[in-house]
């Protein structure tokens, strides 16, 4: 911070020398003190803000390791039971030190860790599958759409561009509802045209379930991917592609061998963003999910039912997972840009 004071002070002196008139030395000193106080106030505000940002996450993190059967303070020592309980399911005599009112199953055996819980693991798996499918679709369609808008001018391109942006200003809940309603409405006509038995597999895909969840999330995540990829494509030197074509490459070959590698950093960040947005999506998914929940849906329904320390442990897994993935992507980008100079 000191560093920056000296720079701002020196600029103020320099500029006052430049237009020597009107500003007194005392005035400069006064504004300097005022500014320092102002910056201090700003700094304090930022510190309070950072506490506001991190306090809930840290409290949740600490509670996940607290050795109690209810998710609250005071601190009773460290346990990893809520992540994985090696004694899960074993019937034990009640523990005298913590008579928390557990009947039947002893304290240690009653704790269900995240990795003891098959339903939870299943929902994590579902979220993974959905996120991978959404990411793959979004990257492909994002790239082709970016190529379309950045390379071509055609009749109605502005209108189409707005239509492409629309998913960003449609609330996720409404997107989910509309796709649910549309999927449901084409079942009847499909049956009428092709016959009940022939369309059975298609109809089951249109019903609430993971497949339609993928479509619903893709509907707006593809816009995010398109915007990220477009931003980099705008800086692509077309001469490179032209050179490749002069040397005998087809347009397709030139795009796959020159343009796509150029887009790689944008593809990586678009991929990470798409994956995270999909993995944690709630609003759109809520309306399209069937009996097989994704992690956020299961998390929410359990939360509504009862708050347990296990939910804190799931939160910790999610917090660490997303932050690690984000940092890895950021680090990769940093590495690339520093490597290139």
């Amino acid at each position: 911070m000191n560093n920056n004071h000296s720079t701002s002070n020196s600029t103020s002196t320099r500029s006052s020398q430049r237009n020597n008139g009107g500003i007194t030395q005392a005035g400069i000193r006064r504004s300097r003190i005022g500014r320092r106080a102002l910056w201090l106030l700003f700094g304090l505000y930022v510190v309070v803000f950072i506490i506001y940002l991190y306090a809930p996450l840290i409290v949740t993190g600490v509670l996940a390791f607290n050795n109690r059967d209810i998710p609250s303070f005071p601190w009773k020592g460290l346990t990893l039971d809520w992540f994985y309980n090696p004694n899960y399911g074993k019937v034990e005599v009640e523990d005298e030190t913590e008579a928390a009112g557990q009947i039947g199953i002893g304290r240690a055996g009653g704790r269900v860790g995240v990795f003891n819980d098959q339903d939870l693991l299943g929902s994590i798996k579902n979220s993974f599958y959905v996120a991978i499918a959404v990411t793959a679709l979004s990257l492909v369609v994002g790239t082709t759409t970016a190529l379309l808008f950045e390379r071509n001018r055609f009749k109605g391109d502005t209108l189409l561009y707005f239509a492409m942006l629309a998913p960003l200003v449609i609330p996720g809940v409404i997107l989910g509802v509309s796709i649910l309603a549309f999927g449901n409405s084409i079942v009847g006509p499909l049956r009428a045209i092709f016959g009940r038995e022939t369309v059975k597999p298609i109809v089951s895909l249109l019903r609430p379930g993971l497949f339609i969840v993928v479509l619903g999330q893709f509907a707006w995540i593809a816009t995010m991917a398109t915007l990220i990829i477009s931003a980099r494509l705008r800086r692509f030197p077309m001469v490179q592609e032209d050179a490749a074509m002069d040397l005998g490459a087809s347009r397709f070959k030139a795009i796959t061998s020159i343009t796509i590698p150029f887009l790689r950093p944008a593809l990586i960040s678009a991929g990470v963003v798409s994956f995270l947005l999909s993995f944690e999506n709630f609003g759109t998914t809520l309306f399209l999910i069937g009996s097989d929940p994704t992690l956020p849906i299961l998390f929410f329904s359990r939360l509504r039912f009862e708050i347990t320390p296990q939910i804190n442990a799931v939160s910790v897994v999610l917090i660490l997972g997303t932050i690690l993935l984000g940092m890895a992507a950021l680090g990769l980008e940093q590495l690339r840009s520093s490597g290139r100079g």
Partner: peptide, 15 residues
């Protein structure tokens, strides 16, 4: 903190 799922962030405030 914004990389973390909204659900987790909201839940964290309940804690």
């Amino acid at each position: 903190p914004y990389w973390v799922s909204e659900l987790v962030r909201v839940y964290a405030w309940m804690n």
